[in-house]
């Protein structure tokens, strides 16, 4: 077991974790942040996407011990801060989610796109940025629309 101290959604968290525990399980099981989802646990589906020190990462491919002394933001954090409000509203208005299992990862990835893209309405750039986030339900188009809507605001 290893002690870690990190900031999660603005709160300082101290915990003791087994080295093998990945960050997604830590967030979900020990912190109750079940908005971060697990779809594959081998880095391919993007359901577990969160922000670590400002960059999006797969939380199934980061160990909780590696996250010692980092700043973590999850879907709960970007919701509470209001950062994701416009995107979440656009996702709902455009019906860009069905089962909603991919949505937290999509929203976090979309925020990253909007923050970094030279042209936030460029649909093929949105598709490329989201190319590692799997959605089985929507067919993606509504998600692209929702992000482009916010990009145009």
């Amino acid at each position: 077991m290893k002690p870690i101290t990190l900031t999660i959604n603005g709160e300082t968290i101290r915990a003791t974790v087994p080295p093998r525990l990945h960050l997604a399980d830590f967030l979900r099981d020990q912190c109750g942040l079940t908005g971060t989802h697990l779809g594959c646990e081998h880095g391919v589906c993007g359901a577990c996407t969160i922000r670590l020190d400002g960059a999006i990462v797969r939380s199934c491919l980061v160990l909780a011990v590696q996250a010692d002394d980092t700043i973590i933001e999850t879907i709960e954090g970007v919701t509470d801060s209001g950062e994701a409000r416009a995107l979440q509203a656009a996702f709902a208005a455009r019906n860009a989610l069905q089962c909603g299992y991919c949505t937290p990862g999509m929203v976090i990835t979309a925020l990253d796109f909007l923050a970094t893209a030279p042209d936030p309405c460029d649909r093929s750039a949105i598709r490329a940025h989201l190319s590692g986030n799997y959605c089985r339900c929507t067919g993606y188009e509504a998600i692209i629309d929702a992000i482009a809507m916010v990009g145009g605001q």
Binding site: G46, L61, T109, D112, H129, G132
Partner: peptide, 9 residues
């Protein structure tokens, strides 16, 4: 190479 959330690490 992969996707943004993988390239960041």
């Amino acid at each position: 190479v992969a996707h943004p959330a993988i390239r960041s690490r």
